[in-house]
Design a protein around this nucleic acid. Sequence first.
RNA 1: GUGGCCAUGGUGUAGUGGUUAGCACGGCAGUCUGUGGAACUGUCAGCGAGGGUUCAAAUCCCUCUGGUCACCCCA
Length: 442
Amino acid sequence: MVYKKGIKKDKKLSIKKGKKTVQTLRGMKDVLAKDWFYYDLILNNAKKIFEFYNFQRIETPILEKAELFEKGVGEKTDVIEKEMYILKAKENKELLALRPEGTASIVRSYIEKGMFNLTQPVKFYYFGPFFRHEKPQAGRYRQFYQLGAEMIGGGDVVADAEIILLSKLFLENLGFSKKNIFLLINSIGCPNCRPLYIKELKKYYKKLDKQICSDCRRRIKENPLRVLDCKNEKCSLVKQGAPPILDYLCPECRDHFKALLELLDYLNIPYILDKTLVRGLDYYTKTVFEFCLENETGRISLGGGGRYDELTETIGGIKKPAVGVAFGVERLMQEMVRQGKKFKPTVPKVFLVQIGEAAQKMSFKILEQFRKEKILLGENLGKENLKSQLKIADRLGVKYVLILGQQEVLDGMIILKDMNSGLQELIPWEKIVSEVKKRLKN
RNA sequence: GUGGCCAUGGUGUAGUGGUUAGCACGGCAGUCUGUGGAACUGUCAGCGAGGGUUCAAAUCCCUCUGGUCACCCCA
């Protein structure tokens, strides 16, 4: 006898979106199964490539002292000045930051753990969430994932080349074709030569003050290199006439850049020399690069990086040359979706139907048998009647259904039903796993 | 941070000042208490929030919240 359980309706369960509590914060999202498919794909891909080249996975805390990033990334950068989430610890009023990027933390770890005593360079890769308080947009969230790699303690161009090569392999293995990805590269010099260049640049822009956009007038004061990045048509003429940074590099920087380009040629890595490429974080020196992709909507940057020879000193007082790269995972995902890479949920091919209390309990044992043999077995143990369970099984599109009713429990048997033919037969419990296994092979 | 567009059940939508806010998918239950795919029935669930105009607002106006696009910036 099946009796109906009285299920009382709970009016409070109805969702009140208006209450605001039931709403993700702006620019943040729940990562659901369909998203994890992509995150997993990207991370596994990175593991394969970076681990082969002896990069070690590292995961630093999401929370760090705010000053780590202020010092490391640069107080005048937008990332720090406008976009960093800062919170105050209740107890000691210490200022903490949700990490806005990965490099500063890894450098911190490198110094703190004394990793300069290991064989150099030390290679890391990481994958995790980062936070920036920006206005959300396509492929841009306030909590976003980055996948990055860093090599600390290597000043030779082979380090730059290795990072670039692996980045390229990583993208290609994810299915981005060589045709639509391209590599932009530039050198922005070092503390020896860059100030001189900036002085020249300022001098040049000052003369043409009237011909540039208001953003550039601001940039030339606050972050002069960024004028080179301006997309305003008004400025393009001025930009073209600007002194090229490469002409101002010191001999060391120039040699480094030249050697890198030669190495890239040797490795058959095509690049576009982009003398207007500058990056938004202060710590970059010498090499900067970016991997871009051209699609219907325009050009988007999938990731980028560069050399940061001064950062270890800024943060920890030890000078170690380093180079790294980071990819925007959501951007990669967005492009993968656009290119038709589809998430396919894993669905079981077999479904267990149970009728009656005894069978319901027994089901756990059957499920365990299948789990041990790594065969996915669908179930909905909360359901009481045969019909609704078969309906679920049918919707899942399973090939076989196992039916365990009161009679079968008494007999130590289980019904194996073929969903295509509708034929069914009785199988003893101890044989059911092997029987299913056999059939799934065909 | 600046500007444009947008917001109806879980999803997709109809509804341009007066509708019991309609439909489809979905969830649950049933017709059919040991047999799925179909059909039918019932049921769950909505005008993002707040304020204003009006006799009357999903509809018009304002603010906020969120989404989206461009800029800024960045991955």
